[in-house]
Nucleic acid binder design. Structure first.
Length: 399
RNA sequence: GCGAUUAUGGUGAAGUGGUUAACACGGUAGAUUGUGGUUCUAUUAUGCGUGGGUUCGAUCCCCACUAGUCGCC
């Protein structure tokens, strides 16, 4: 049973609820993280994360639902394919419909009729990825609305305030996601600023039923990643993300970015690798002790006709599937694979039909979620490396 | 039957007496990482209705034929 929160302002790190009319105050985090098994082969681990909207198993993959929806996929379908967590976005929900509308609806969960745990990204990445004009200052970021061109301002406090209104289970610090490559001098300033923003965000955070995560930055610079991680830990968060990856760097560089920071993060807190969702990077991340992933890739490439399968990626648009009436992936148990043929999916995607995008989105998400199930099982069975080797072979991935 | 007019790839079409025939759609293939349902990249006519002629050289100029469109009887 989810407790109600009678007061807006609750001292952070304290948990308030009423019990037979008496207000009980408890020191408690919004989430708890309990490690179940540590891999004997690697730094991988399995755990259970308790959230206000239920328990989830890690390592996990979180489908992305930027605009309070995983594009084309309903909440019921998300439950069906084994999705545990979804990611939504501060910046996008702020612009439309507006966080106050969502708050008035009873928060994101009620608004979108999704009862599982939700994480909201802070908007820091959108400043990097969407804004043509951005002016990064100590107080925050001035930039243009990518829809209308209006001038906007987002600060650490504002990002937290919006996220408090949205009401996700996990919310993120407002960070700067610097471009790759960036100079050492730029990165040093950026990391420092992001750390100051993390402190300000933590001060501004008002809801004890939401866990605020910090974000490690520092680009590909070892000492900056170390510094960023250590300073964040001093500030203290219930979970830590690794940001600034998948911004154009190559895989070995990405893995270094993880390695440089993760060793300074506490073992007993969840680690979240932001924006990563290729098969190889998921294995590489899990191997290094990552617990959470999110990525737009499976749903985006689905809309453009690429299916992720147990036999590798497959472009359903290809002519060779014109008369192929077999199932997409015979090792998959999803709705799409149980009911539709490649030829039909090809037709739908080529005709730009929404159903095609929907069916491939469901499939790709199921593929990744099932992959995560297999990964958790392999960690528990101490056969993680064997599983990794299996998939690296299929996907023709070199270390 | 007579006159006018047009003929360029799968489609709609630009274009010029002189190396590789514009562009768009479509086709084929690839990309996509804290969302681009509308994106990006590459590739796609050894040939300009058919046959002659003029010319150093013709898809372009000339003639005939064929086919379409419009008009007249």
């Amino acid at each position: 049973m989810k407790p109600d929160f009678p007061f807006q302002k609750v001292p952070r790190d304290f948990f308030l609820f009423t019990y037979f009319g008496i207000i009980i105050v408890m020191k408690k985090e919004a989430i708890e993280f309990k490690i179940l098994k540590k891999s004997s082969e690697t730094k991988a681990r399995t755990a259970v994360m308790t959230t206000p909207h239920g328990d989830v198993k890690t390592p996990m993959f979180m489908p992305v639902g930027t605009l309070a929806t995983v594009k084309f996929v309903s909440p019921e379908e998300l439950y069906d394919i084994g999705s545990q967590f979804i990611l939504s976005n501060t910046y996008h929900c702020w612009l439309r419909p507006g966080e106050k509308i969502i708050e008035a609806a009873g928060g994101l969960h009620k608004f979108m009729n999704y009862d599982g745990p939700i994480l909201t990204d802070s908007g820091g990445f959108q400043v990097f990825s969407l804004a043509q004009m951005r002016n990064i200052k100590e107080e925050g970021v001035y930039f243009k609305n990518h829809l209308s061109g209006d001038k906007l301002f987002l600060s650490p406090e504002k990002a937290i305030e919006i996220q408090n209104s949205l009401g996700a289970d996990i919310i993120m610090s407002f960070d700067e996601c610097p471009p790759f490559p960036a100079t050492y001098e730029y990165m040093k300033d950026s990391v420092d600023r992001t750390l100051r923003w993390a402190i300000r965000g933590k001060e501004a955070h008002k809801r004890a039923d939401q866990a605020l995560f910090g974000i490690v930055q520092g680009g590909e610079f070892e000492d900056l990643r170390e510094y960023s991680a250590k300073e964040l830990v001093k500030i203290g968060f219930p979970g830590y993300a690794i940001g600034g990856t998948s911004v154009g760097e190559d895989k070995p560089t990405m893995y270094k970015m993880i390695d440089y920071g993760i060793k300074y993060l506490p073992e007993d807190k969840p680690r979240y690798l932001m924006g990563v969702g290729t098969v190889d990077a998921i294995f590489a991340g899990v191997e290094r002790g990552i617990d959470m992933f999110d990525c737009v890739l499976p749903t985006r490439i689905a809309r453009h006709g690429t299916a992720m399968t147990t036999l590798g990626n497959l472009n359903i648009r290809n002519k060779k599937f014109e008369e192929d009436f077999s199932t997409l992936d015979e090792n998959c148990d999803c709705y799409t694979c149980k009911n539709y043929t490649k030829a039909y999916l090809r037709h739908l995607i080529k005709a730009n039909e929404g159903l095609g995008m929907r069916l491939l989105s469901i499939h790709n998400l199921r593929f990744l979620l099932k992959l995560m199930e297999e990964i958790r099982e392999s960690i528990n069975n101490d056969s993680f490396l064997e599983l990794k080797e299996h998939y690296y072979k299929i996907y023709d991935i070199k270390e």
